[in-house]
Simulated assay, not measured.
Amino acid sequence: MTATPPLLSVQDLHITFPGRHGAPPARAVDGVDLDIRPGEIVALVGESGCGKTTLARSLMGLVPPTTGRVTFAGAPLDYSSRALKAYRKRVQLVLQDPSGSLNPRHTVYDAVAEGLRIHGYDGDERAAVAEALSRAGLRPPERFFLRYPHELSGGQRQRVVIAGALVLQPELVVADEPVASLDASVRGEILALLLRLRDELGLSALVVTHDLGLAWNIADRVAVMYLGRIVETGEVEQVLTAPRHPYTQALLSVLPEAPGAPVVLTGEPPDPSRIPSGCRFHVRCQILADGEAARAGVADACRNQDLNILTGTGETQVACHWARARTETTAAAGSGPGVGAGGGVTAEPQ
């Protein structure tokens, strides 16, 4: 997979928003590299406020980057109206709340056909809408044509939203919390649908979520985001079975099937206009708080020494001084350079 050229690539992306009343600008996305390859599902994971939705909106051209660039199919994203219209035919957005995504005055048919009409589709509109609904699992599709959103269940509404994305035959779908508002029984159906669409159509997807359990079930690769930056990334099984960053370990510890006691992080994520020096997680880090980082000799580095941006490739990487120290200890013991608990490559500090 890593040898395949990326379909979408994000390079050193920064997005800042002006501060209010003279406050410093908020660094919502503060240096992100991320690649998504054809047929690959990448989960972008993090708690609320970490910048993952801002990143997703930037990939759609809705939020131009302050610095850095987004590349699609080898070409930099052009932010002119005409270019964005052509781009959004190939990259579609699926939002969290289907009730808010669908116009209550439009029938299912009109909701799905809207994209075709915007892009001037000159084929058989009825057949295209029927095929999209059928692929999304609403069969027979004609039965849903004249129904309104309020007549559908939550799962059916989300399938209509997915059909509205599929009708344009996109190459990539950006799904922002696609099952967060659904019952547990329906969530599995929608996730299975996304996996089937990947297998049948070769569809790529970026799935934005706060739920590591969802990432485990659907993703090929996971990127864990904290305070505007990706702090751990790699193949989903490797990252989630042997997490190396303390933040990833804390997120995993609260899953129902996780062994041991949950890790309770102290305080709230820092203000993105006042990002701490050193490791941006250090003010909440359980490894630093319990003295383990000091025993590894990296406590000062955690507080004061910045870490490089992780690359967007498929390699397993972590931005953590403590994880790096463990890697070096393991390497010195004879495991070979660059491999540590979890089997990945750490980011060197600047």
Rank of each mutant, 00 (worst) to 15 (best):
P262K: 01
G154V: 02
A83Y: 11
A325C: 04
V112Q: 11
E125L: 02
V263W: 15
E237M: 04
D33T: 08
D199P: 09
R324K: 15
R324V: 07
L84G: 05
A180H: 06
A132D: 08
G188I: 11
T107C: 02
I309T: 06
A128S: 11
T266I: 13
L193T: 09
T53S: 11
L310Q: 00
P38S: 13
Y109P: 04
G334S: 05
S181H: 12
A223Y: 04
Q238M: 02
V254A: 15
G291L: 09
L307D: 01
S9W: 04
H106L: 15
K85W: 13
V91R: 07
R27M: 07
P140I: 13
L206W: 06
S81A: 12
P141C: 13
V45E: 07
E328V: 05
G61M: 08
L55Q: 09
P246K: 08
R117E: 03
C285E: 01
I230S: 10
H14W: 11
R27T: 12
G39Q: 01
G334P: 04
I218S: 14
A111H: 11
L116F: 03
L93D: 10
T316E: 08
I118S: 12
L240R: 01
R135A: 04
E348G: 08
A43Q: 08
R196H: 08
A219L: 11
E257F: 12
I15Q: 06
E232N: 02
A165T: 01
Y148K: 08
P6L: 01
G278H: 05
A43H: 06
V236T: 10
R159N: 13
T346W: 14
E200A: 05
G260M: 01
Y148E: 12
L138G: 12
Y148H: 14
P272N: 04
T4V: 14
R90A: 12
V222E: 11
D300A: 02
R324L: 10
A113I: 07
G343C: 03
I287N: 08
I275D: 00
R326G: 03
V231N: 04
L194E: 09
L102E: 10
E235M: 01
T248I: 03
G155K: 10
M60F: 07
G31W: 00
V236R: 00
Q156D: 09
G234R: 00
